[in-house]
């Protein structure tokens, strides 16, 4: 798979490049700002762009804005945002506009080389990857609560779903059987009043509801 990286800190850029190359990615371009990133995506059409949230010249949310542009104009390119600290509004912005091919991780997660590579692969393949801290923080901010009806176990399952895990991934993480996970998930759909339509769609809706990005039907 092909990737570009936009990161203004040289050390971290080199680190991420090494990790991705070791994981079998082909690095098309390495840039240090949003403008360069958009040019590189236009030129190479990569499978994924790994993007720092804060970049020159403003050091605020250049990366997020570039990510929204990329997801809108180049649907074939997934975006994984890297951030020094959790800015859940940015994560919410990103998720409100896209439900696939996006990710938001803290920079320190790059150190967990295998897991990071796995997350990049997942996002590049059209999945999602959310940092556990982002999930926790979005949970704090969410106040309207059909979610209070969930059992602690169901909550755990939903958190892992929000992190982008598949049923088998969730089962492995919680050390339960896959059928138990499926049972929990069905129970979650029922409690959140999600219509019995396409299963994947319901899954995304449940996660969005959980993150407070989408409002329950009124």
């Amino acid at each position: 798979m092909r990737a570009v990286i936009a990161e203004d800190s040289l050390l971290l850029r080199i680190g991420v490049v090494k990790v991705l190359e070791a994981a079998g990615f082909e690095m098309c371009a390495q840039v240090a700002d949003a403008e360069g990133l958009l040019a590189a995506v236009e030129e190479h059409r990569p499978d994924i762009a790994v993007v720092d949230v804060r970049m020159p010249p403003g050091f605020t949310d250049e990366g997020v804005r570039a990510a929204l542009v990329i997801r809108h104009q180049y649907p074939g390119t997934a975006v994984l945002l890297l951030s020094q600290y959790v800015e859940e509004r940015y994560a919410a912005d990103l998720l409100a506009a896209n439900t696939s091919g996006v990710g938001y991780l803290l920079k320190q997660r790059v150190a967990d080389v295998e897991e990071f590579a796995e997350a990049v692969r997942r996002v590049a393949a059209g999945g999602t990857a959310l940092d556990p801290q982002v999930v926790a923080q979005l949970l704090v901010r969410r106040h309207s609560d059909p979610l209070d009806r969930l059992t602690p176990r169901e909550r755990e399952v939903l958190e892992l779903m929000a992190g982008g895990r598949s049923n088998s991934g969730i089962a492995a993480e919680l050390v339960v059987s896959e059928s138990a996970v499926a049972k929990h998930i069905n129970s979650i759909f029922t409690k959140l009043d999600l219509p019995k339509a396409d299963a994947d769609h319901r899954r995304v809706l449940a996660v969005l509801r959980f993150l407070g990005v989408a409002r329950p039907p009124s």
């Binding site: 800190s9 050390l11 971290l12 080199i14 680190g15 991420v16 090494k18 990790v19 070791a22 020094q84 920079k107 320190q108 790059v110 150190a111 967990d112 080389v113 295998e114």
Partner: peptide, 16 residues
Amino acid sequence: QQRLVSLAVNLGLARA
């Protein structure tokens, strides 16, 4: 912070 992350990445790579 950047140096430490870089160090951890290198060690993680070495391990992997």
